[in-house]
Structures are given as structure tokens and as C-alpha cells.
């Protein structure tokens, strides 16, 4: 692979992410990694459901009186939007429009950071209510499930930023196109997991 080869939108392939052997391998490998991640989250969800509302006798907290939907709904919207903006970024990547891609990625990162900020605010709020990590089996299961998702968001953000900074001068080439593609795939996965968290933890929690 020649790093110095300059592409134009005309010579740029339709699917730059799988145009090279390395890209193909990364593409398949990453989907497999996401399968493993799915099992990880499935285990966490199962544990959360088993331990939901379980605590020391006389525990005052329950999912139905703890969670508040408006904030979580806002977080959901922000993350869903960021998924959309990353789709725009990939659209420009496929058209070899590096600047537009960087711009949309920047917006994605900002939205992701906003989501993470709100999540930290939410956790902080619960801790001040007395619902800390060591409070009960319920709290441990809740923070571990949602916190693992949060850690994924943080990792995704760092990955976005590292790629954007590293390639800001280099521009798009066949070496980094698969990487951009994978991080956006990862971002969609995080988004899907959040939809499940929103449904299983918050909606089903508040409803009862």
C-alpha cells in the first residue's frame, strides 16, 4: 500500500473501508468483536434484571422511584443524533471529502461529550441521594451496566479524537479510511446498546 498515493473523488473506491486486504480483515474482525461485545452487554443486562430492586431489607430505592425520564430522554436524543452525524461523516468519507468528514466527526464528538456529561451529572445526582455504588446489589448492577456503556462512550470519543488529530494533516487514504469506518461502526453499536438501556433500565424501570 502506498501512503503517498493521492486520490481524487473520482479515483477513490466506492467502499474504501474494504478495498484493501487489511481493510477487509479489519471489517470482519470488528464485526466479530461487536458480537463479543453484544454477549458482554447481554450478560450485564441479565444480571441487572436479576438484581433489579434487590438490596438489603428495607431498601428505600427502587427503579420506579429513582429514575427520572426527562433527563434520560434528552440523553437518548443526543446520542441518537450523534449517530446520525457520524453517518454524515461516513457519507463524506466515501466521497473523499475530508474536510466535511472532519467537521461532522467534530459534531459527533461534541454530542458524545454532551451525553457523557449528562451521564456524569445523573450518576452524581443518584450518589447524592445516597444511592452509591456500594449501596446494594441493585446499585452495583445499575452502575456496572450503565457505567460500562459510559466507558464505551469515553473510549469511542478518544478513538474519534485520536483519528481526527492524527490524520488532520495526512488527509484520507486507504490506510486510515477503514479506521474511520470502524470507529463510526463502533459508535452505532454504542447507540444501539443505549437504546436497550433506555428501554430496559429506564422505561421499564419507571413503569414498574
Amino acid at each position: 500500500m502506498d501512503l503517498n498515493k493521492k486520490y481524487t473523488p473520482q479515483s477513490w473506491p466506492d467502499h474504501p473501508e474494504t478495498a484493501t486486504m487489511e481493510g477487509k480483515n479489519k471489517f470482519v474482525g470488528f464485526w466479530l468483536l461487536l458480537a463479543a461485545e453484544t454477549v458482554t452487554f447481554a450478560s450485564l443486562f441479565a444480571t441487572y434484571l436479576a438484581l433489579k430492586d434487590k438490596g438489603p431489607s428495607g431498601m428505600e430505592f427502587a427503579a420506579s422511584n429513582l429514575f427520572e425520564l426527562p433527563l434520560v430522554f434528552a440523553m437518548t436524543m443526543i446520542l441518537l443524533t450523534s449517530s446520525l452525524t457520524s453517518v454524515y461523516a461516513m457519507y463524506h468519507m466515501k466521497n473523499h471529502n475530508f474536510k466535511a468528514m472532519q467537521a461532522w466527526l467534530g459534531i459527533t464528538v461534541l454530542l458524545g461529550a454532551a451525553f457523557l456529561g449528562l451521564e456524569i451529572y445523573e450518576f452524581n445526582h443518584y450518589v447524592h441521594l445516597g444511592f452509591g455504588y456500594t449501596h446494594s446489589a441493585f446499585s452495583a448492577a445499575f452502575y456496572t451496566l450503565v457505567g460500562t456503556h459510559g466507558a464505551h462512550v469515553l473510549f469511542g470519543l478518544s478513538w474519534f479524537i485520536a483519528l481526527m488529530v492524527r490524520n488532520s494533516k495526512r488527509g484520507l487514504n486507504m490506510y486510515n479510511a477503514p479506521k474511520f469506518y470502524l470507529v463510526s461502526l463502533y459508535w452505532h453499536f454504542i447507540d444501539v446498546v443505549w437504546v436497550f438501556i433506555f428501554t430496559v433500565v429506564y422505561l421499564m424501570g419507571v413503569i414498574g
Binding site: L51, G55, S136, A140
Partner: peptide
């Protein structure tokens, strides 16, 4: 294994029956 580590390291209660664990 992470649950086990969290229980032992950070005082989580996944497996502590008195705290609702299982």
C-alpha cells in the same frame, strides 16, 4: 470475573446475599 473483582475491590454487592446479591 469483573463482578468478582468489583465485589472484592470496590465493595459492590453482586454476590453479597445480605445486600441483595445472588
Amino acid at each position: 470475573v469483573f463482578f468478582m473483582v468489583f465485589d472484592r475491590m470496590f465493595g459492590a454487592n453482586f454476590f453479597d446475599v445480605t445486600m441483595g446479591g445472588n
